[in-house]
Nucleic acid binder design. Structure first.
Lengths: 316, 316
DNA sequence: GAGCGACATAACTCGATGTTATTGGTTCCA
DNA sequence: TGGAACCAATAACATCGAGTTATGTCGCTC
C-alpha cells in the first residue's frame, strides 16, 4: 500500500476551488471562507503555479473555473466526506459516543468496585466499552507500562515500597480513590473477641495467616509498631480461605475491610477493629495524559463518583 | 450540501499519524517522511493540542498510537485514495489523456481547416474531445470573452478595425496561423479572363457581388487603392452562391482563396489573381493563459502543424 | 552503571499564508 | 461619455506554522 499524498494538492486548494465554484466570484468565495479577497486570489495563483495548470480564467470582470478547476471542484465533495468520516470518528471519541477502556484491577476489586464501575459506565456512557482483566498491583503497573492496559486499580499500604506515588515520576499518574482500614479476624471463642477494638499486642503469641506478599509485608510493619513479630503459619491471597481458616481455629488474620464484602463471615469467626489502626488506600493509575483521553477521563470520573460507604470505603 | 472541511484536520497530520502507525516509532516515521525527528514530534503535539485529544502515548522508550490515533491511521487510506482520484484526474488533463476544447471558427473554415484539425486531433490526442461551433469572427470573440468557448479561429484583413491584435490588449491573445491572398472571380467570357493577373482598375465599371460585411469593407479598401469605388449589386456571405452568381453573369467578385476550396468552380466562372494584390490572415484567438492549458496548447500546436499549401494557405 | 536508542525541548530560520491599501479593468447608468 | 460600482490583481507587509540543529532526559540492554 503506497499511500502517496500528492504534495501538490492540499485541502485548502480544494476548499477554495470549491468555494469559487459555489460563489462564482473570487470575492464571493472569500466571503464564504471568511478570507479577504486577495488571500483567495493569491492562493489560486500559487496553486496554479504548483500544478502548472490554470484553475480559473477571467471572464469579464468576474472569473470562471477552467476544466481543471471544475474537476477539482467535483472531487471536493468526495474528499470532504472522507475527511468528515475521520473527523466524525474523532468527534465520537471526544464525545464519549464510542471508545474502549482497558482496565486492570486487583482481585478483591473484581467482585466489588469493578462490577459497580461497569454498571455505572453502562448507564452513564453506554458507548464506551470496558475491557477488564484482573491483576495484582505490580503486574497491573507493568501492563500499564507496556501499553496493554489504559487504567489500573491498585492498592497500597502507607510506606509501601511500591507505593504508586513512586511511579508518578515515571510517566504514570495516580489518584487515590478510597481509603479503608484493616481489621483482624479472630475465632469466635478467642479471649479478645468480646472487645470492640482489639489491641494487637494481645495477639503477639498467636499464629498468623498472611495474605498476599504485600499484605504480609504490611502485617509485619503493623505488628512491629505494636511491639512484636508475628509468627506466620500460612499464606494465601484468597480472603475467603483466610476467614475460613480462622473459623477453623488455625490462627488469626488481618484483612482490609473490602475483602470482607464478597466473603460471608462464617459463624466461627468474628471481625474486629484493631489498635494501632492501619489503613490501605486504593488508587487509580494511568499513563500521564490519560486525563485528556475522554473515555479514560470519564472512567476516572465515574470511579470517583462511586459510593463505597456501605463497604467501609472512604472516598478521597 | 454543507461540505465542511474540518479545519482541525489537515493532510499532514493524517500523513504523519499514518507514518507512525507504519513505523512504530516517531524516529522511524520521520525517516519515512524525510523529516527530522523533532519535526514529527512537534507536529504530533500541535495536532493533539488542536484536537484536544492525545494521538500517541509513550510506552517504554517508544511510542504507540492511542485509540484516536489508530482511528486516524485507519482513515488515512480512504482519504489518500480520494485525493489520488482528484490528482489523477488533474494528471490526465495535464497529460492530454483527457480534456475538452470548445472551438469556434468562421464558416469557410468549417469545411476546410476544422475538419483537418479534428482529424489530426483524433490521431494525436485521442483523449481530447473538441466541441465545435461555427461563428463569424466578431461573434467568436464575444463568445471567447464570455467564456463559452476556449479557442476561436478568425480572419482579418490588414488594417481591419477589428483586427485581433486590437483584442490582445484585453486579456485575449492571438496568433496568426496562415495568410492567403484574395482572388477575383470573373465570368468565363469576361474580357480580362484571359489575363493571368487581372488589374482591378479594369473592373471599375463592373457590378460587384460582395461577401460578408467585413469582406465588403475590404473590397472597398482594395478598390480604393486601385482608384475606384465598386458598385455593389449583391451581398451574400455564401461563397458558393457568389461563384454561381458570377457564373450566371450577375457581376464579378473578390474572394479569399480558401473560399474556393470547398466550392466547385462551375464552367461559367474563372479564378484570377489580381493587382494590387491583397491578403487575408487567419488567426487563432484564445484567452490569455490558454497556453498553459494542455488541451488548448495541444490544439494550437496541431493547428500550427496543419499544411494548407494545397489550399493556397501560407503557414506563418 | 555505561552506552545507546528514542522522544522531548529549546532556539532559531524561513516560507507559506494571511492582512490592508492600492491599482487596473469591466459593466452599467445618467 | 464620464463616473460609480464592482471585481480581480498587485504591492508591501505581518505573522505563524512548520521545519531545522543542538541538546536534554529517560528507558532499555549488556
Amino acid at each position: 500500500m503506497s499511500l502517496s499524498f500528492d504534495p501538490q494538492l492540499d485541502l485548502q486548494t480544494i476548499r477554495i476551488v470549491r468555494a469559487i465554484a459555489d460563489a462564482g466570484t473570487i470575492t464571493g468565495a472569500a466571503r464564504l471562507l471568511g478570507y479577504s479577497q486577495p488571500a483567495v486570489s493569491q492562493h489560486v495563483q500559487r496553486a496554479e503555479a504548483r500544478l502548472n495548470l490554470p484553475l480559473v480564467t477571467r471572464v469579464g470582470r468576474s472569473v470562471r473555473l477552467t476544466e481543471a478547476g471544475t474537476v477539482l471542484a467535483r472531487h471536493a465533495l468526495t474528499i470532504a466526506s472522507a475527511l468528515e468520516a475521520a473527523s466524525g470518528d474523532l468527534a465520537d471519541l471526544a464525545g464519549l459516543r464510542t471508545g474502549t477502556v482497558r482496565l486492570a484491577a486487583f482481585p478483591t476489586a473484581s467482585s466489588t468496585i469493578v462490577p459497580r464501575l461497569l454498571a455505572a459506565m453502562a448507564v452513564e456512557h453506554p458507548g464506551v466499552r470496558v475491557n477488564y482483566v484482573e491483576a495484582q498491583p505490580p503486574e497491573a503497573v507493568a501492563m500499564l507500562r507496556e501499553g496493554s492496559i489504559d487504567l489500573a486499580i491498585t492498592f497500597s499500604y502507607p510506606g509501601d515500597r511500591s507505593d504508586p506515588h513512586v511511579d508518578s515520576a515515571n510517566g504514570l499518574g495516580s489518584e487515590t480513590l478510597f481509603t479503608e482500614d484493616t481489621v483482624v479476624v479472630l475465632p469466635t471463642g478467642h479471649p479478645l473477641a468480646d472487645q470492640h477494638v482489639v489491641d494487637l499486642a494481645g495477639l503477639s503469641d498467636e499464629r498468623w495467616i498472611a495474605g498476599c506478599p504485600r499484605c504480609r509485608g504490611h502485617l509485619l510493619a503493623v505488628c512491629e509498631l505494636a511491639g512484636f513479630a508475628p509468627a506466620i503459619a500460612f499464606e494465601t491471597d484468597n480472603a475467603i480461605a483466610v476467614i475460613n481458616m480462622v473459623a477453623s481455629g488455625l490462627g488469626v488474620a488481618m484483612l482490609p475491610r473490602l475483602a470482607l464484602v464478597a466473603a460471608a463471615v462464617p459463624p466461627g469467626a468474628v471481625i474486629r477493629s484493631h489498635t494501632p489502626a492501619s489503613a490501605r488506600s486504593i488508587h487509580l493509575i494511568a499513563n500521564e495524559g490519560a486525563r485528556r483521553v475522554p473515555s479514560l477521563a470519564a472512567t476516572s470520573r465515574v470511579l470517583h463518583g462511586l459510593d463505597g460507604n456501605d463497604w467501609g470505603l472512604v472516598a478521597v
